[in-house]
Amino acid sequence: MITVSNLNKKFDDLTVLESINFSVKKGEVVCLIGPSGSGKTTLLRCLNLLEIPNAGSIMIGDKTVSFGKKAPSKKDTRELRNFSGMVFQGFHLFPHKTVIENIIEAPLIVKKKKKEELIREGEALLKKVGMFEHRDKYPDSLSGGQQQRTAIARALMMKPEVMLFDEPTSALDPQLVGEVLRVIEDLAKEGQTMVIVTHEMSFARRIADKVLFMDGGYIVEEGSAKQVLEQPSEEQTKKFLQMIEDE
């Protein structure tokens, strides 16, 4: 499903990703954990080409894009992005559009589908994420959790092969975190392939088939959730988990 090979990323002279190699199988949930500044979000953004790597390659589905001196073409970028849906820390909803208008906007423009058909699909997704009764509300009247559930439905409207989540609960009040995590857990049970940057260790323990611990732009440790979170072999991983536990 996803194969990342020898990926490197620099911002000017600062190397933020170095020799990144990992794979994600269809239906697998992979959680990226690690301290702030370790490269987790940059790696996720590289998977969707929101950041362009300096070297290496990414294969998603049957599409492979290689990086080097030449930037990927618009066609390659579009085809790679078609495989994935992205959910950000902030909700990035259109403030002047209702919930249902927000989630049908992209397929309306990109896939040129009929609006009536998209509304039916959108309402089904809103029921799935518990937002149907809010379909005609505007984002500023919603809680953070409701906005994030709308953002998840919006990403799902494009029927992505893989969902990418960048700290999906970090902007939420503690009492709203659970409602968003439940939606993501339901997607995992349905077999949705996902790559999730998260600081919620108990959530990662429940949901992840694989955990990657990152530090300093490297993948330091990789394994099952039980292996990495409960029996880490690397000293950096042990120190990070102890620090999280002490907070």
Rank of each mutant, 00 (worst) to 15 (best):
R206E: 08
I33T: 01
V183G: 11
Q147D: 02
E116W: 09
F203T: 06
D215Y: 14
S66V: 01
K113E: 15
A151E: 04
T98F: 11
K97Y: 11
K127P: 04
L80H: 03
K189E: 15
V65A: 06
M163T: 07
E101C: 02
S141K: 08
Q192A: 03
E18I: 00
V180L: 11
P35K: 07
K226Q: 15
R45P: 03
R135D: 02
L17Y: 13
I2N: 03
T41R: 02
I104K: 12
E117H: 09
M158Q: 07
M194Y: 11
I33G: 04
D215F: 13
K114H: 13
K137Q: 14
F94G: 05
L172W: 02
D13H: 15
S36A: 04
E221C: 12
F213C: 03
E133K: 13
K75Q: 13
T77L: 09
M194K: 09
Q89F: 07
S84T: 15
I103A: 12
R182N: 13
V180P: 15
E123A: 07
F91E: 01
E247S: 14
A55I: 00
V180C: 10
H92N: 14
A124Q: 10
P232L: 09
E200V: 09
E190Q: 10
L47I: 05
G145K: 08
F94T: 01
E234W: 12
D140K: 14
E221A: 05
M158I: 00
I109Y: 13
V220T: 11
G68Y: 14
Y138L: 02
I119W: 14
E101N: 02
I152P: 12
S202K: 14
M163Y: 07
M163A: 07
D62G: 05
T237Q: 11
A55V: 00
K75T: 09
M163S: 03
L164F: 09
A155W: 06
E116K: 14
S57F: 07
G223R: 07
R120C: 05
L14C: 05
G122L: 01
K26C: 00
V16D: 14
V220G: 11
S202Y: 14
F11C: 01
E117I: 03
K226W: 11
G130M: 06
A153L: 00
V29G: 07
N54P: 06
Q242D: 15
F83H: 13
V87D: 07
R205D: 10
I60L: 06
S66K: 13
F83G: 01
E234V: 09
I207V: 12
T41I: 00
K114Y: 14
V195H: 08
K10W: 14
